[in-house]
Amino acid sequence: MIAFDRVEKTFKDGTAAVNGINFHVNEGEFFVLIGPSGSGKTTALKMINRLIDPTAGHIYVEGTSVFEHNLKDLRYKIGYVLQQIALFPHMTIKENIGLIPEMKKWPQEKIDERIDELMTMVGLEPKTYKNRRPAELSGGQQQRVGVIRALAGDPDILLMDEPFSALDPITREQLQNDLVNLQKNIKKTIVFVTHDINEAMLLGSRICVMNKGEIAQIDTPDNLIRHPQTEFVRSFIGDRRNAWEDPLIKVLRTIEGESDNPSDPQPDRAALNSELTLSEAVKRLDQSFEPSLPVYYQDGYLGELSYKRALTYLRSAQTADKRVGGTIL
């Protein structure tokens, strides 16, 4: 879907932002670019929709070099979500979302339908919010509009540059979850820039770690944690192996506390043994295609393991690490 072939970008002032990177993003994939500040993530992202042009190498979108695409068509094909959100303050929400469909000359009826559909999808009641201006929305609501504005023209690809970093943690988490669900439904190819490793782990099907304009490692979240290929990657993502190797019983006790024993809401499912490590358990969860699985200690039901809970546990382990001076971020 997207391919980078020895791409370089050196700015006019001599800054080498990207130094020969190669990667490809598959159709429907959620591809995350991560790295410290100044590592060239934004530069790499903007080269995809030609907001920046490379000084060397080739970039292909759907098999064709970006330079051979008609620029307008290329950009219609690619939605772009900015960190600054950048809704047009002089237009209503409806007008903001309708911009691209209008430029694509959709019939007005279809545009109106599309606006309602998208707003409903991200939980913004169209009647209430359609005619407001961006300033009359909360930050989280604005970024939801930012996302659906990029989706309005039904692009195949979605580029997102730290879209949630300006939001408070609770709103950010909501939007992250929304995006996971969205991705399941709409199946776009997404390239997502962040420097929050947890966000990367939660969202990415593959993560590309960048450092000083080069790619340090591209891998699934799982592999990245298990097999960091360089010291940089290891220190960047933090030493999570311990937490992943923790037995489920520890995981669930930590999350649930040792309070009352709950009862299994849906008995007779495949269950997880509480002695499994978290990484084993997550693998089985993957294979089961279920949102969550019950965990049993001997015959007693301990609770549910979901991705979210796994992540919560990993996160709390990480903060604990930090407290004792671990090397995370």
Binding site: I78, A86, F88
Partner: peptide
Amino acid sequence: VDPALMEASRSMGMDSRQQLLKV
């Protein structure tokens, strides 16, 4: 005009005439 807005409008495929008139 906020450069972020200009970038947003470019990313949407607006040419400079559309940027001028719409933004």
